[in-house]
């Protein structure tokens, strides 16, 4: 199973199948959003899992003896770490970002627009007398 994490090319077919099913159970495909078991997202996840090898291995081992829904429901510490990794990889996928209304890019260097807001809201506060405590 360690090979699954450290080298994409050495993924065992059975493990890949289990991982894909688990990911699609966690975040299923819907409309224009791929499931988390989409091959591109799985590849990203495997690449990003270097520091969580033990946790991912433990989660997949659990899948051998439990239904996938039960693996999720058990909420083990290993699954929590795995789940955080899944979210990180899922929500940086180009298709997912586009589907949730984000441009598929890093924040820098373009940044984002932010509206000025309604500054007239400050008028009643401006009318208030100073109220910090005198000493």
């Amino acid at each position: 199973m360690a090979d699954l994490i450290t080298s994409d090319s050495l993924i065992d077919d059975k493990a890949l199948d289990t991982l894909t099913k688990l990911l699609n159970t966690m975040i299923p495909p819907s409309g224009d959003r791929p499931g988390a078991g989409d091959p591109e997202i799985v590849r990203d996840l495997i690449s990003a899992a270097q520091e969580l090898e033990a946790q991912v291995r433990n989660v997949l081992t659990l899948c051998e003896t439990h239904a996938l829904a039960d693996v999720i429901a058990l909420k083990t510490p290993d699954f929590s770490a795995f789940g955080a990794l899944v979210l990180q990889c899922y929500y940086r996928d180009d298709r997912v970002m586009a589907a949730i209304g984000m441009e598929p890019r890093s924040p820098h260097p373009q940044g984002y627009d932010l509206e000025a807001g309604d500054w007239s809201l400050l008028d009643p506060v401006k009318a208030r007398k100073p109220f910090y405590r005198e000493v």
Partner: peptide, 23 residues
């Protein structure tokens, strides 16, 4: 009014939707 007078050298950050809503 909550603080002694002082004059920051740059204008404030935008209120945005979040600031306006909570304001």
């Amino acid at each position: 009014p909550a603080n002694p007078p002082h004059n920051p050298p740059l204008p404030p950050v935008p209120l945005g939707k979040s600031g306006s809503r909570l304001a």
